[in-house]
Amino acid sequence: MRELSLHIMDIIENSISAKATLICLEIIEDKNNDILKIIVKDNGCGIDEQDIERVKDPFVTSRKTRKVGLGIPLFEAACLRCEGRLNIKSKKGKGTEIEALMKYSHIDRAPLGRIEDTIVSILLYPQLDIEYRHVVNDKEFIFDSREIKKVIGEDLTLPNILQWIKEYIKEGIEEIGGGVY
């Protein structure tokens, strides 16, 4: 995948399949220590203990259409490529946390890309809430779809509302000097 935001989207699709209702996405650009950290946490059904290491194997998947699942293996490959790693923590019935670590300045690190597009695509699922925190060194931007729902009610899936959210997030990320690369 060309952008890390697409990997994030793919991982969140897993959370949706796991019947999550809340996604916590954290992106930490720690330029001083040259680390990029991405954390996706959900409150879905979780992964069985004996399966946690196995999900990194492309030939392990819960889907029925075929026997290959590439979401997590691809994301892990993207981390390993730039001196990083992918950690998976999960509790059955509680949820799953995926932590991706990368060397920020590594030549092979894919750009973050359009995070706002990923979030807006996910908000098309009406049952889902997302808490998004983006940190660049000591600056921080936070977006919480539950706050928006307090203002405008439960339905965020209208195109012009999503358009607004997209612009809002884009501006927020720009303000803290994050994203894109």
């Binding site: 995948m1 697409l6 989207m9 793919d10 699709e13 699942g69 590439l70 979401g71 691809l74 597009d117 990923t118 807006v120 695509s121 098309l124």
Partner: peptide, 16 residues
């Protein structure tokens, strides 16, 4: 369609 295959093939810009 928004699985790994769709996303990798460029489904997000299509959706948007």
């Amino acid at each position: 369609g928004m699985a790994t295959c769709g996303i990798a093939a460029g489904a997000r810009p299509v959706l948007l």
